[in-house]
Structures are given as structure tokens and as C-alpha cells.
């Protein structure tokens, strides 16, 4: 995957097409999960791959793997979009539909699992509500406002509480080297 991105950085359109084939189901999954709307997710996916094409040169300087670089571009764009919206429309039924349509792909599923799982141990040391909030915020792109509603606490309380969890997490990750 990293090799493909390097070729994309050289402007190789065939490599770009191949990169899209291999990675677009994952990045589309990111868009759907965070934006919760199919049309918005398709629009976002276009924008994301245009950025991938434009920013491929900076991949070498970025930390982390090719997969996390791609997901970061997708998440940042999707979260920017949803924060710019006034209020996301929560629709449980839509989300079930999306899950049903997901395509299991053993080959690529493996590729997305090669990130270290050290964080799991540190997450396990947090109070369960705190680790759940951290993970849900990341995966679903929840805002502080949504988290405050979810946990039925004031906005300032949720922020202080989550920050404490994040700093504990950092301490744990650093102590593992």
C-alpha cells in the first residue's frame, strides 16, 4: 500500500486506481459511520480521494502506516463536514441498513488489523464508561455535545472527564515505551 501511495505521489494514475480499489471500501465505511448519510458519504469520498491524490507526496513525511494515513484523511474530512453541519440527524434505522450492506472482505480485513493493539491494554485500565466514550468518539465521530447528551452530564463536566481519561491513557501508553 505504501508503494502504491509513492507511485501516486509521482502522478501514476494506474496506481491511483489500484489504491482506490483496495482502500475505498474502508474509507467509504468511515464516511458512512461518521456522516450517517449515503449521499453525503459519496460526496465526502470524492473529496477524500482528491486529497489523497494531492497529498500523496506528503505521505513519506507522515508518521504511521499507509492505512492509518488514509483513514486519518477520511476521518478528518468527515468530521469537519459533520461539525460544520448544524446538527446531525440521528436515525437508528439508517445505520442498521448501512451495517447490513457492508461487504466482508477477508483479504483487506487482514490488512486493516496490522496496527498495534497496545492501546487496548491501556484502554482496559480506564473506567469502562471513559474508555467507551473515547472509542465511540473516535469511531463514530461524536462531538462533546453528543457525548454530554449520551452520558446526561453538562458539557463542561464531560470535557473535563474525558480529558482526564485521555491524559491517563497517554501516561499508560508512554510507560509502555
Amino acid at each position: 500500500m505504501a508503494g502504491l501511495i509513492s507511485r501516486v505521489a509521482l502522478g501514476d494514475r494506474l496506481a491511483f486506481a489500484r489504491l482506490y480499489t483496495h482502500t475505498s471500501p474502508k474509507l467509504f465505511g468511515v464516511c458512512l459511520r461518521i456522516l450517517r448519510d449515503r449521499t453525503d458519504a459519496e460526496e465526502a469520498l470524492q473529496e477524500i480521494y482528491i486529497r489523497v491524490w494531492q497529498r500523496a507526496k506528503s505521505f513519506g513525511r507522515a508518521a504511521g502506516t499507509a492505512n492509518s494515513w488514509l483513514v486519518t484523511i477520511a476521518r478528518n474530512h468527515a468530521i469537519d463536514l459533520i461539525r460544520a453541519r448544524k446538527r446531525p440527524t440521528e436515525d437508528i434505522d439508517d445505520r442498521t441498513d448501512i451495517a447490513d450492506e457492508s461487504v466482508p472482505n477477508p483479504e483487506t480485513a487482514m490488512a486493516w488489523k496490522d496496527e498495534g493493539r497496545r492501546i487496548d491494554e491501556c484502554m482496559g485500565r480506564l473506567p469502562s464508561a471513559q474508555s467507551r466514550a473515547v472509542k465511540q468518539a473516535y469511531v463514530e465521530g461524536l462531538s462533546y455535545v453528543e457525548l454530554a447528551e449520551l452520558f446526561s452530564v453538562p458539557l463542561s463536566t464531560i470535557r473535563m472527564w474525558l480529558r482526564r481519561g485521555l491524559l491517563k491513557l497517554r501516561e499508560c501508553m508512554e510507560s509502555h515505551g
Binding site: 471500501p25 508518521a63 448501512i98
Partner: peptide, 23 residues
């Protein structure tokens, strides 16, 4: 650094094939 830490959650995103017209 945080991005690298939290990327461990990326497998939680299901893969969904986008419509061909997007590419």
C-alpha cells in the same frame, strides 16, 4: 502520536463498497 495510538480502532470501520460512479 495520538493518530498512531487511535488508529488501532480503525478495524472497527466496516468495509462498504462505494458505487462505481464515485470513482
Amino acid at each position: 502520536t495520538w493518530q498512531a495510538h487511535f488508529s488501532a480502532f480503525d478495524p472497527d470501520y466496516a468495509e462498504v463498497s462505494p458505487p462505481a460512479a464515485v470513482f
